[in-house]
């Protein structure tokens, strides 16, 4: 069989894996960004008890392997009677993990904004939430774009751990085809696809960075 024809023949399977990877990736980002932002604000300004809980959260989720976290969600929770669909379990795990990293990224960004900005806003009569929304967060966004880009790209690659817990993601499908046909082409296709997704993300973030840099 011609090589190109072979690639075309496996593409439908590959596409189904790519679809799952993309779904989990997008769902994670949609949830993790607000989780990170709210947790960061909570850490900067929340009451002591909230700060402590959030400290515990980032400590645990950044301090243990993501794969182990997936194991707990997939094999541990059912033991105590919590049954989630694989998609939900995966999305929750990735969201909490990524959210923990984003919390620290956003917290650093918020804390890097000059104290004078808060004072000027307060002297003009703005409330704390107005100050955050209109003055602090927009400046923070610009500063956290580069580390957020790294986190977004990391997350693409981390979705490949889904293969280990048996979800038919891009890597898992590629592996299945490899075992069936004993041909490494599916790995090469997966390799190229991951690289394309990462590159698109990097491009997207540098466009955003340019857009947010006009005032510098």
């Amino acid at each position: 069989m011609d090589h190109m024809e072979y690639v075309l023949s496996i593409l439908p399977f590959i596409a189904s894996g790519l679809k799952l990877t993309a779904k989990i990736y997008v769902a994670t980002l949609i949830f993790a960004l607000p989780v990170g932002l709210l947790a960061a604000i909570g850490k900067v300004r929340g009451p002591k008890i909230i700060t402590k809980i959030l400290y515990l959260y980032t400590w645990i989720w950044r301090g243990t392997p993501l794969l182990l976290q997936l194991f707990f969600m997939f094999y541990g929770l059912p033991i105590i009677g919590i049954r989630l669909s694989p998609f939900a379990a995966a999305t929750i795990t990735y969201t909490l993990n990524s959210g923990a990293y984003l919390t620290e990224i956003f917290r650093g960004g918020i804390e890097s904004i000059d104290k004078g900005q808060y004072e000027a806003a307060k002297a003009l009569g703005m409330t704390y939430s107005q100050t955050m929304r209109r003055i602090i967060i927009p400046q923070t966004v610009r500063r956290v774009l580069p580390p957020t880009c790294s986190e977004a790209v990391n997350l693409v690659k981390e979705t490949a751990l889904l293969a280990v817990i048996g979800m038919p993601d891009l890597l898992r499908i590629a592996t299945q085809i490899f075992t069936r046909d004993f041909n490494i082409t599916p790995f090469i296709v997966a390799f190229v696809l991951y690289l394309i997704i990462s590159s698109v993300l990097v491009r997207l973030f540098s466009t955003l960075e340019k857009k947010y840099s006009i005032y510098e």
Partner: peptide
């Protein structure tokens, strides 16, 4: 109204 030594304009 208040005016600061370091201006504190909103840079964005």
């Amino acid at each position: 109204g208040m005016v600061f030594q370091s201006f504190n304009l909103f840079p964005h």
